[in-house]
Design a protein around this nucleic acid. Structure first.
Length: 490
RNA sequence: GGCGACGUACCCAAGUGGUAAGGGAGAGGUCUGCAAAACCUUUAUUCAGCGGUUCGAAUCCGCUCGUCGCCUCCA
């Protein structure tokens, strides 16, 4: 298995610290607002990575944190009149609502920054003792900064040169810092801000220190995989490395994994640009699985352009998948008991694709979690299954083959957490996602009416019913043993 | 200004040395009472451009053009 490591800029063979075990930490969200599609991408990517690691047999411990204390949370609290911890609690809840909908599994450990203040203080103390950090008085309390000059390898992750950073510093230089690049480990609390008691008086943690404290507490001083969005490379992850390695003297993470952005009109989707869609907004008109497939159709490091067209593409692909599964189920129900019949060439072609399917999936995922290729193979299988069905086979052997194929798709789909529903459920859920004002009951009644009309060879009445449903967004499919319905895509 | 990505058909997208996956859209066909789905055919002698290395390059190197990201909070 190979993983692209941001640290080296290369795909590397994945060798965990302890054979068979993986410790992985992904930076989660700061809980001050609803999540947007960019957050969804990151969550989906690391969800799939952890699922795949388990699929490969690694005993995986996955930690994803919540940043529940920070300037933005405090600001939000001040704006809304709520307390800072109420804001955090609310948006953790909202986060779970969105992520649960998207099929993001809970991480094994989901720590909160504020539950690890003691660990952070311990790390900061040691860093001061080792000469890597210094306290600066601010009123009655002190702030503590990490002295970047004491960590010779600073910049190794983001490939930045300390001199360039200084020269290009765009932020107003804080007079109290020894060097402009020094960053806060601990912030003296200002009036009205939340605070914790510390050796430096009343204060609160800086942003980066929480990940060091939580990662070490839950996974040890060196972990296998540390991930997050590409925008965290600098300064967040760079600073984590500096403080963590200065503290422990050991490598902090062996593989650094960063997902690419979601863009709109080629620009990064972000709060500050205002060009974002919340997960919740998208879920008003698309099924959650559509978002998942949209994300997993590209490699996790590539930028993906967000648009309605893209979502519709993903929706059409999913519909194709579920339609094929529906065909298979129908075949098994209807034709399995019939006289055995299979065209040898068609059966051989299907068997061939089936044999290659799982190894190809593993090969794709082993190559830096290439879900785009994996999804490609999945749809090749779909095409082959349809081809086979078109040869009109029958009998138990054909049914067995199709059942095996369906099971393969299901088990591989589970790693991506896709394709988990029945075709019927997919269509029922689409009624809601597409806000179609018909219930399944009504649709079935219309189909019944149309059946009667067709039996009477009243084609005009039958077609009128078809058109009526079509106008509402429902397609009817006449088959040998009856008429089925599906939600029209696009 | 510094650093780093990326540029593959109408659209999306994989492909990091061996002769262009897959999906969508379009056109034609098979099937169908009409449809739909599905399948078949068709859409890049070519991978932003120009040079170079090589028996061989979309893949490696150089330059040019274009787009984006990070350098400040950001998934």
């Amino acid at each position: 298995m190979k993983i692209y490591n941001t640290m080296t800029g290369m795909k590397e063979a994945f060798v965990p610290l302890q054979p068979g075990k993986v410790g992985m930490y992904a930076c989660g969200v700061t809980v001050y607002d609803y999540c947007h599609v960019g957050h969804a991408r990151s969550a989906i990517v690391f969800d799939v990575i952890s699922r795949y690691l388990r699929y490969k047999g690694f005993q995986t411990t996955f930690v994803r944190n919540f940043t529940d204390i920070d300037d933005k949370i405090i600001r939000r609290a001040n704006e809304t009149g709520a307390t800072w911890d109420a804001v955090a609690a609310q948006f953790i809840e909202e986060y779970y609502r969105d992520m649960d909908a998207l099929g993001i599994a809970r991480a094994d450990i989901e720590p909160k920054a504020t539950d690890h203040i003691a660990e952070m203080i311990e790390v900061i103390r040691t860093l001061i003792a080792k000469g890597h950090a210094y306290a600066v008085r601010e009123g009655d309390n002190e702030s503590v900064y990490f002295a970047v000059d004491t960590f010779a390898e600073y910049g190794k992750l983001s490939k930045k040169d300390l001199e360039d950073l200084r020269a290009g510093a765009r932020v107003g230089v804080d007079e109290r810092k020894k060097s402009p690049m020094d960053f806060a480990l601990w912030k003296a609390s200002k009036a009205g801000e939340p605070w914790w008691e510390s050796p430096w008086g009343k204060g609160r943690p800086g942003w980066h220190i929480e990940c060091t404290a939580m990662s070490m507490r839950h996974l040890g001083e060196t972990i296998d995989i540390h991930g997050g969005g590409a925008d965290l490379i600098f300064p967040h992850h760079e600073n984590e490395i500096a403080q963590s390695e200065a503290f422990s003297g050991k490598p902090f993470a062996r593989y650094w994994v960063h997902n690419g952005f979601i863009t709109i009109d080629k620009e990064k989707m972000s709060k500050s640009l205002g060009n974002f869609f919340t997960i919740r907004e998208i879920l008003k008109s698309y099924d959650a699985e559509v978002i998942r497939l949209f994300v997993l159709s590209s490699h996790y490091r590539s930028p993906i352009e967000f648009s309605q067209d893209q979502l519709r593409d993903a929706e059409a692909s999913l519909d194709r998948y579920y339609s094929t599964i529906a065909r298979i189920e129908e075949f098994i129900a209807v034709s399995a008991g019939a006289a055995p019949k299979m065209q040898p060439a068609a059966a051989a072609a299907l068997k061939n694709v089936m044999e290659r399917f799982q190894p190809q999936f593993v090969e794709a995922m082993d190559d830096d979690f290439n879900t785009a290729i994996a999804v490609g193979h999945l749809f090749e299988m779909i095409r082959e299954l349809n081809r086979f069905l078109d040869t009109k086979p029958s009998g138990a052997e054909a049914a067995g083959l199709l059942a095996d194929a369906r099971e393969m798709l299901r088990s591989v789909g589970a790693v991506l957490n896709l394709f988990g529903r029945t075709p019927h459920q997919w269509n029922v859920d689409l009624l809601r996602a597409k806000q179609i004002a018909l219930t399944e009951e009504v649709i079935l009644r219309k189909i019944q009416e149309r059946r009667v009309a067709r039996e009477n060879r009243d084609w005009a009445a039958a077609d009128a019913l078809r058109q009526e449903l079509d106008a509402a967004g429902i397609l009817l499919e006449d088959k040998k043993d009856g008429t089925g319905w599906r939600v029209k895509i696009v």
